[in-house]
Amino acid sequence: MNRAAAAIFLVAVCSGCPKRIEFGPEGRIEDPEALFQVTSQAQANVVTLQGDAKIRVASPQGNGTLSLFVAISRPSLVHLESADFFNRPVAALVSDGQRFGLYQTEGNVFYQGPASPENVSRFLPVVLPSEELVALMLGQVPFIPAERKTLALDADQRLYVLTLYRGEVTQTLYIHPKHRRVVRSEVRGGRGYDLFFEDFKQKGNQVFPTQVELKAEMARTELRLNYSDVTLNAPPDLTLFELAPPEGARVVEVDARGREVAPAPPSPEGGPPGA
């Protein structure tokens, strides 16, 4: 066999060989509970994020893309600012986990009220509690409270497959074998959504997904978040989470469902409000 034929033979043989799976320093993990614990810790290591992003939404209510400035801190501090195509401010949403405020430049209106899922999710086509919103934007997966777990290894995708069970509900987690971060989460048997994490980059001593995608099949909704320049785990600037309305803005109080609350009638002099 001449050298050219030998080279072609070797390429053909090697192309049919499975690629080697690179595990972490501890080697392959066989126990589902052990993998769940190290995966939980790997994603929990990111506690704050600040930087720029774009969010793309596709839903029955409409499609669109927004530029965002994002500052978030676990468990429930949120600051989101949106801008238009010309980078002019459009709206800013702030929540401290108990109260929220939303300032809209159009109309110079400041909405405030309880930090309910309906209120803190006003930038999104899906309704999420503030803790869950923060987790997703930190590239983390909310786990179902599992009654049992199973573990397999997908050699073709070179990923762990960890499945959590609770009654009829399952959550299947596809986990990178080296850095132990979830790359895909699928919930079946109940109301939920699928998550996809891509374009992982080394940020300091953390491995972080700079692209997060949410798909809610029942709601026919997709949301994609792309980070362009972010800082992780810096001390949060707490002034970003202050809820005071801008000077001169019209203040509107809303309830937990986002509905405007009529102002209380003025109280008679010396009497309790509403007397």
Results as ranks from 00 to 15, higher is better:
S121D: 07
S121N: 07
R122K: 12
R122S: 10
F123T: 07
L124T: 04
L128C: 10
L128I: 12
S130M: 07
E132M: 12
V134C: 10
A135P: 00
L136E: 05
M137E: 12
Q140V: 08
Q140S: 13
P142Y: 06
P142W: 02
F143K: 02
F143I: 04
I144P: 01
P145I: 03
A146P: 03
A146M: 06
A146I: 01
R148A: 10
T150P: 03
T150G: 06
T150V: 08
T150Y: 07
A152G: 13
A152F: 11
D154N: 15
D156P: 05
Q157C: 06
R158M: 12
Y160S: 01
V161D: 00
V161T: 06
L162A: 03
L162N: 02
L162Q: 00
L162H: 00
T163F: 06
L164A: 07
V169C: 03
V169H: 01
V169S: 04
T170V: 09
T170L: 07
T172A: 13
T172F: 04
Y174P: 02
Y174I: 02
I175K: 00
H176R: 13
P177M: 08
K178D: 15
K178C: 12
R181T: 06
V182N: 00
R184Q: 14
S185R: 02
S185A: 15
S185G: 09
S185T: 07
E186M: 13
V187E: 06
V187G: 08
V187T: 15
G190N: 07
D194R: 02
D194N: 12
D194H: 08
F196I: 09
E198N: 14
E198R: 14
E198T: 15
D199H: 13
D199N: 14
F200R: 03
F200V: 02
K203Y: 15
N205A: 11
V207Q: 11
V207E: 10
V207H: 09
F208L: 11
T210A: 09
T210D: 10
V212K: 00
E213T: 10
E213N: 04
L214G: 04
L214N: 04
K215Q: 12
E217L: 11
M218N: 14
A219D: 13
R220I: 02
T221V: 13
T221W: 06
E222T: 15
L223G: 04
L223N: 02
L225N: 01
L225M: 15
N226M: 14
Y227C: 01
D229N: 13
D229F: 09
T231S: 11
A234F: 06
L238C: 10
F241H: 10
E242D: 11
L243S: 07
L243K: 05
P246T: 05
G248V: 06
G248R: 02
A249L: 01
R250Q: 12
R250T: 12
V254M: 01
V254S: 01
R259F: 00
R259L: 04
E260G: 02
A262V: 10
A262N: 09
A262R: 14
P263I: 05
A264G: 15
P266T: 14
